[in-house]
Write a protein that binds this DNA or RNA. Structure first.
Lengths: 168, 168
DNA sequence: TCGAACTTTCAATATTTATTGAAAGTTTTA
DNA sequence: TAAAACTTTCAATAAATATTGAAAGTTCGA
């Protein structure tokens, strides 16, 4: 496999992985392209290399900045914005968890809390099953939330070794 | 909020959470419905309560069985299949991680391994940046894979307390 | 073995989500 | 401050994904 085949396959693979873990396919592809580029790329470079439109490139680059997965780099003597990827993959993973925790877990916890207050006959079978299900789910979601919160504050080795110790 | 409002909101919330964590919206909604039902439900019950077609109900129930998130229950004197949800949410979370690890992480690791073997000039800036990026990513993906593998073998409290100890 | 009861499939269709590209907006420098 | 260089927006459109429902398939009891 030569460089260009490998590059395309990498962009494709990273895009697929990204889209299954909650970041859009194109955003992950742009990130992949930036990751393997030794130098910062402009919007036009991204458009050209991924064969996507200006609007699309711009939108996905901006989303990458929002998620903290890429940075702007200004080159002196040039008015264009250039972009580089966050290349510390552990940091990338932590950023994604952090964003998704904020965007997804928090609203769910709020909704669950509200649902426990359902009015009705406390002896009704359905009512009991409902409150029980919601309470159990809330407990697990809270623990997952806690685990993710800790995970983003630790480095990659600490987590792995903590888990490993449980098995020694 | 009365029982019916709460039930609808719960199904909606669980569907949204599910779809953002890799299981389809309707599959998560069917699971939600089963979770809060004190008794096993038939395909027709699911169709009626979620207002979805027979084909859709059937497909999603079968997917839930595939993922290990629901079970068939046969009632004597009735030829219909009835379904109950896996109600241990920690087990649900573990099943989802297990399935996704198999379906998503493993193929990515294989692809990455292949990509490291890219042919080309080892002193070229692009080539070096490429191999470095792929190697770094592989290292983190392997660790995540390891962490998930351990997570599905432990119970919920063990993981939380292991993480907690790191902060005491 | 037949036919009733139930389950599964799949091509057509609907819904959702992503992409385009031209127009509007912004910044820079001469 | 004018206009060139660049960025952003957004309505139209395309692509991907999910859903329907009728038809085909299966199972079971008589």
């Amino acid at each position: 496999m030569n460089y260009h085949e490998a590059k395309d396959k990498f962009i494709q693979t990273w895009g697929t992985l990204g889209s299954s873990w909650g970041i859009s396919r194109t955003m992950a592809q742009v990130h992949a392209l930036l990751l393997i580029s030794p130098d910062a790329l402009s919007t036009e470079d991204v458009m050209e290399q991924l064969k996507i439109s200006r609007g699309n490139a711009n939108m996905n680059l901006r989303d990458l900045l929002d998620w903290g997965l890429a940075y702007k780099e200004l080159k002196s003597g040039d008015r264009k914005d250039f972009f580089i990827a966050e290349k510390d993959i552990w940091k990338v993973a932590k950023q994604i968890i952090k964003e998704r925790r904020k965007r997804e877990i928090e609203p769910v916890l709020n909704a669950l809390e509200e649902l426990k207050a359902v009015k009705g006959d406390k002896n009704d079978k359905k009512h009991k099953a409902f409150v029980e299900a919601v309470t159990n789910i809330e407990r697990v979601v809270e623990k997952a939330d806690f685990a993710f919160d800790k995970a983003i504050k630790l480095d990659e080795n600490a987590i792995v070794s903590a888990l490993f110790k449980l098995f020694k």
